[in-house]
Amino acid sequence: MTLFLQFFLTGIVTGSFLILATIGFSFTRRVEGFLNIAHAELLGVSAFTTWGLNVLLGWHVVAAAIAGIVFTAFLGLAIGRIVYDPIRRLGPSVLLITSVGVAYAIGGTVDALVGTGIRTLDIPLATSYRFAGLRITDYQMIVVAFAVIATGALALFLNKTSMGLAIRAISANPELAASRGIDVKSTSRITWLISSGLAGLAGVMLAVVATLSTDIAFHQILQILAVAILAGLGSLYAVIAAGLIVGVAMDVSVFWIPAGYRPLIAFAVVILVLLFRPEGLAGRKSR
């Protein structure tokens, strides 16, 4: 039983990371209206920028992480303005396919600069804490804390500020929002900054809890897609629920079936959801 609870607890940590990785993706989907496959590559950019500043240049890890997140946010903004804006009129399918090209370009650049091999940040080893027989490390607690802070801050921003209101208006009906005098361009810029910044934060978390290799970003997109589909590509709260469900399901599954099948659980969830409830957990019918 303790082992089961331990898997469950690890699942919550995994889920928290997935929430961080997915909210940016889901946010782009909502406001820009397409699935940005390249989102996961931004996690890699941020993780390796942090690693480069921290290990190669000897910066303190916090400074390196902040620089990594800011760099990723502006890189995402630049890609949005240069690549996606001019082709928006061609529809979401072309945008989706183009984002595959963007993922290739980013992934290849990271590969060329970093090379193969396994890397870790220059930080102290994790300290393990015990609560009633369950173990959790301080870095895992940081991941959970940041997931709570990031989702809370985003919810406050969307609900309490006028910029948040503008973003919600655009995601609901872009033409109407534009005709009511909302500046679509600047709203879109803010969206790219926020979603890429969140990808940056998730990348830093990845660098903190995991060992880094250059193919790590690609593996994340699979799980991000799983969470986003389960959430119904919509509301922030659905993403939180979906992230926790997928995270816990993946880690608890190890209790019964071989660990090699762990990623498969995420996809089994995707297929089941799309077959029986294509609009997702909280989505409206819109096929």
């Binding site: 690549v83 183009t98 595959v100 090209g101 963007v102 993922a103 290739y104 370009a105 980013i106 992934g107 290849g108 650049t109 590969d111 060329a112």
Partner: peptide, 11 residues
């Protein structure tokens, strides 16, 4: 680099 060029060509 080949990967990057392929991606950019695609875009």
């Amino acid at each position: 680099v080949e990967e990057v060029v392929t991606g950019i060509l695609f875009i």
